[in-house]
């Protein structure tokens, strides 16, 4: 078959009819797809749920292992225990000294014949006691 014959055959194919059932099938399928309600098909919902589950599981089980962080606990505040100051032995208050009884000076014994001179503020007055 040469090029001329080929072109002739091609031209002959140009207006060949198409099977009616194929056309009808295409039309029907296009109509169905276009006017199909917009709800989401169940398998898509299932796929979405499975995917969501996988993501959740990933978050739960595959999250990066965290190195244990050493938490430095703040040192507990030491409550300064204020020791009571050593008890200073409280000296018992010194008992009031008892006044030592002073020896009572013995009154000068009056010797008979003794002259006792008592001066008064008034120089002119002098009291003389004569035993």
């Amino acid at each position: 078959m040469n090029e001329q014959e080929m072109r002739e055959v091609f031209r002959g194919m140009r207006e060949e009819p198409v099977p009616a059932d194929s056309l009808a099938r295409v039309r029907t399928r296009v109509e169905e797809r276009i006017h199909r309600p917009r709800w989401v098909s169940p398998w898509k919902v299932a796929a979405a749920l499975v995917m969501a589950g996988c993501i959740a599981a990933g978050f739960l089980f595959l999250r990066p292992v965290r190195m244990p962080v050493r938490t430095v606990e703040p040192a507990p505040h030491e409550i300064a225990q204020v020791q009571p100051p050593p008890e200073i032995p409280v000296r018992a208050a010194p008992e009031p000294r008892r006044a030592r009884p002073r020896p009572v000076e013995a009154a000068p014994s009056i010797v008979p014949g003794m002259l006792i001179r008592i001066e008064t503020p008034d120089p002119d007055v002098v009291i003389l006691l004569v035993n």
Binding site: S22, V26, R29, V30, R33, I34
Partner: peptide
């Protein structure tokens, strides 16, 4: 037929 269907859906 599959291709024709897809073509018209794309046109839509």
């Amino acid at each position: 037929e599959d291709v024709a269907q897809e073509v018209f859906l794309r046109l839509h």
